[in-house]
Amino acid sequence: MSSFKEMIENITPEIYRNLKLAVEIGKWPDGRKLTQEQKELSLQAMIAWEIRNLPEEERTGYMGEQKCKSSGEPIPNLLFKPSDTLH
C-alpha cells in the first residue's frame, strides 16, 4: 500500500475491531505490547475508518450535545450568608 488513505480503504470491520481493542488494552491480539508509535497510528487509522464508515454518534470521542444537569438553575452562594458583612 502506498498511502495512508489506501490503507484505510482496505480496513475491514474485523481489522477495525482488532485495532480498537489493541488501542484500548495496549496490546495486540497475540499479547505483544503496542509501542507509542503503534498506538498513535492505530488510533489515527481507527478515527479515519470511523469517519468513512460510522455515523457521527458512534465514532470515538463523540460527545453529542452535552448540557449540565443544573443549567438554568441559580448558583448558590456558599461563601456568605445574607447576614454576613465584608467589613
Rank of each mutant, 00 (worst) to 15 (best):
Y62Q: 05
L21D: 14
P74G: 10
R59P: 04
M63R: 14
R32M: 10
G61H: 03
G26T: 07
K39V: 13
L43D: 06
Q38R: 11
Q66F: 15
G31S: 09
K39R: 15
P55W: 08
A45P: 03
Q44F: 07
S42T: 06
Q66K: 12
E57A: 06
E65V: 11
L21H: 13
D30N: 15
K20W: 12
K39M: 10
M46D: 00
E50F: 05
E58F: 05
E37H: 09
M46N: 02
R59G: 02
R59Y: 04
K39N: 11
R32Q: 13
K20N: 09
P29M: 06
G64W: 01
A22E: 00
Q38I: 00
I25A: 04
W28Y: 08
Q44A: 15
K20Q: 12
Q36H: 11
W28A: 02
L54T: 04
K27P: 03
P55S: 11
E37Y: 10
E57Q: 12
A48S: 14
T35L: 01
S71F: 12
I51M: 11
G64T: 01
N53R: 02
R59D: 03
L19M: 14
P74C: 07
L19G: 04
E73C: 11
P74V: 09
K20I: 01
K67N: 12
A45Q: 04
W28S: 00
G61D: 04
C68T: 06
M46W: 01
V23Q: 09
S70L: 15
E56Q: 13
G61M: 03
I51W: 01
D30R: 08
Q38K: 06
Y62D: 05
T60Y: 05
K69F: 15
L34C: 09
L34Y: 08
E40M: 10
C68F: 09
G72L: 08
Q44K: 15
L21I: 15
N53D: 03
L54C: 05
P74L: 11
Y62T: 03
T60F: 02
G26I: 07
Q38C: 04
K27S: 10
G26D: 06
S42R: 02
K39S: 10
G26N: 08
N53F: 00
N18L: 15
Q36C: 06
